[in-house]
Amino acid sequence: MNLRRILIAALALLVGVLLYRNVGSAPAPKSAPVGDCTATRFEDAAFTECLAVPGKHQIALRLKGQNGVIFRGFPTLAQAADRGDIAFAVNGGMYDTGSRPIGYYVENGERLRKLNQADAEGNFYLKPNGVFFGDAAGNWRVLSSEDFAATVTKRPQFGTQSGPMLLITGKLHPSLAQNGASLKLRNSVCVDARGTAHFAISDEPVSFGQIARLMKRACGDANALFLDGTISSLWNPAGGRMDVRFPLGPLIVVTSLRKEPGK
C-alpha cells in the first residue's frame, strides 16, 4: 500500500512539473492595443509593437521643420505636426552627429542622400544593411541595399537606409549571434505578406538576435531591418507616450488616413 501511494504521488508530481513547463513556455499574452501600438513580452523581455496597415495609415519621413531646423526628437516634431492625425512615430535610419542621414534618405519624393554602399566600422556598415521604403499609403518594403540598388528603378516617396539587416528572407543576418552579449534598447521594422508594416521597440535592453526573432514571429520569411539602438524611441499619442531621448535623426511618422464624409 505504501509503495502504491508513493507511485501515485510521484506520478502526480511528474504531471504537475509537465503542466508547469507547458504553461511557462507558452507565449505571453499581449496587452490590449493602445491606439495602434500594443505592449507585449517576448522571450521574457518587454516590447511594444505598432502596426501600419495599408488603407488605414500612411507613412512619411520627417527630418526638418519648415524653418529648416532638424527636429532631433519628438517634442519639436509635435510642435510642427498636426498631432490629431499621428498614429505613432519612431526614429529610423543612421545619422551623423548633426542628426543628418548618412545613408539613403528620401522625404516626400525628394532624395536628400544617395545610397551608401561604403565599407566602414559600426552597425550601419555590417553588410548587408538595408532600406525601408515605399509610397505614402502602401507598397511598403524592406530590401537589402544591394537588392535595392539592383531592382528599384523608380524613386519612392520615402526611404531610409539603416543597418544591419536583421532578417534576410526570414533568416538571421549571418554576422549576428543568436544571443549576443551586447544588450541595448533597439527598434526595427518588417513588412508581412499582407503588406502591413510591423514596428517593434524594446522597452528594455535586448540583443540583435532577440529582436530579430520577434520580427520573425511578426513577419515570417520576410526581410527585417534594424532601425536604431540605445536611443530607440516611440511616440504613441493615444497612449500618452513620448520618449524623450536625444538626439534623434530621421523620424518615421505614421498617420491615420482621414475618411471622406459618408464613407
Rank of each mutant, 00 (worst) to 15 (best):
R245N: 08
R41S: 15
N123D: 14
G103E: 04
E43L: 14
R83V: 04
T255H: 05
Q157D: 14
T196W: 04
L185V: 03
L14C: 07
T97R: 15
G73S: 04
G249E: 01
G68W: 13
N129A: 13
R113P: 03
G65Q: 13
D243H: 12
G163P: 07
H198C: 03
P27E: 07
N116Y: 11
K114S: 06
L257P: 08
F88N: 10
D203V: 00
L183Y: 10
W235R: 13
K154A: 08
D192W: 05
D221M: 15
P101S: 01
L63I: 11
P164V: 07
A26D: 09
R111N: 08
L225R: 15
V206N: 05
Y20V: 08
I6D: 00
K114W: 02
G239H: 02
I168G: 02
R4C: 00
R213G: 07
I6G: 01
G109L: 14
F226G: 04
R41T: 14
V189G: 08
A9T: 09
P27F: 10
S188V: 07
S25C: 01
A118K: 15
G159I: 14
V90G: 02
G68V: 11
D85Q: 10
G103W: 09
Q66R: 12
A181Y: 03
G93M: 12
A9L: 14
S99A: 15
Y125I: 10
N179H: 13
A9S: 08
K263F: 04
K154C: 00
G209E: 10
L176Y: 06
P29Y: 09
A39I: 10
P156R: 12
V90I: 12
S256F: 00
D147I: 00
Q210D: 06
L7V: 11
K114H: 05
T196S: 03
A150C: 00
T38C: 08
N223E: 14
Q178D: 15
N108A: 15
G24W: 09
D228N: 15
N91P: 11
S256Y: 00
H173E: 11
